[in-house]
């Protein structure tokens, strides 16, 4: 039985490969520096690097949704916003 029922496409495969790479990187970082590097950020929350990845990914999803709902289907601008947002999250949250 093949995987045709899952209806894979290259863009969605690339998306999941990216998520898997993020999780792999987090695992490697955890193995090298155990404990999750917790810190108190600007939101007043104690976050580990895994929390920061989650906040970044979830926030980015809503950035894309907001762009799709309010602006257009061209996604380069929200991609740039998500990257900047990610830098801010990993730096300050």
């Amino acid at each position: 039985m093949g995987l045709s029922w899952m209806a894979w496409t290259w863009p969605t495969a690339a998306f999941f490969i990216f998520i898997a790479c993020c999780l792999g990187t987090m695992t490697m970082l955890e193995l090298r520096n155990p404990g999750g590097a917790p810190r108190d950020g600007v939101l007043g929350l104690t976050t580990t690097r895994g929390d920061r990845l989650f906040i970044w990914l979830l926030g980015s999803a809503f950035i894309f949704l907001a762009w799709l709902g309010l602006v257009s289907t061209l996604l380069w601008a929200p991609l740039a916003i998500a990257i900047v947002y990610g830098v801010l999250v990993f730096r300050y949250v």
Partner: peptide, 30 residues
């Protein structure tokens, strides 16, 4: 994963899919 794959395609059954991009997301959100 399957739901994500379906969300960017159109199908008329028979396990055949056609690329639709993010148009369904825009349709739903609007």
């Amino acid at each position: 994963m399957t739901v994500v794959n379906y969300s960017v395609q159109e199908t008329f059954g028979n396990n055949e899919f056609f690329w639709a991009g993010v148009i369904w997301f825009q349709d739903i959100l609007q």
